[in-house]
Amino acid sequence: MKIGVVTFPGSLDDADARRAAAVAGAEAVALWHGDEDLHGVDAVVLPGGFSYGDYLRAGAISRFAPVMETIIKRAGEGMPVLGICNGFQVLCESHLLPGALIKNHHRKFVCKDQTLRIENNTTAWTSDYDANHEITIVLKNQDGSFVADEATLDRLEGEGRVVARYLGNPNGSYRDIAGITNERGNVVGLMPHPEHAVETLTGPTTDGLGFFTSVLKAVVAS
């Protein structure tokens, strides 16, 4: 079982994401933004950071990287893809997920331990959590405010596609949304960082590990 983690110019959390994959028991594979080959991975993580310096819009230029052409195609075929923070922004810019992420409403960078409620535990990345499981993981972002029009928000909620919600809204995200999924449940975008909460030595909890153990089961099952 191989989990690929893409490195874009300006990615920050690619090494932590690879480590989290390894802690969960997967083989972590480093993928390069300029290489369209996914090197046989079974799932992909788009990590946090400031790819291309967040120029134009966060994720807007990364979305057209050669590796993304392959990831968009494979995601359409059902391959699990998790976008964390900047990766979530890339998924929205790629139209793999609806909505967009704009600057935090309070205009400050936020870095804190954040509690979330997992509201959909049927996706490829959340099956190891109980329904309405509350987890505390790291939140650190500048453009973390999830926005979409009312019809899209209603559709996401109606179809159970809100994966995680903030308990105490830290950034102005509409309807406290911290993470969403696509119709099929294989693509998940999440603003907080599960990869920073997989070991007690370096994280507030090990609550983030479930994202990585969930996808192992999803791949084995398929």
């Binding site: 704009i102 600057k103 935090n104 409403h105 309070h106 205009r107 405010s145 926005v147 029009d149 102005g172």
Partner: peptide, 14 residues
């Protein structure tokens, strides 16, 4: 330009 219904934190700071 950001759509009118989207909050503009940078504009607010200015």
């Amino acid at each position: 330009m950001l759509k009118p219904e989207i909050l503009d934190p940078q504009g607010k700071a200015v």
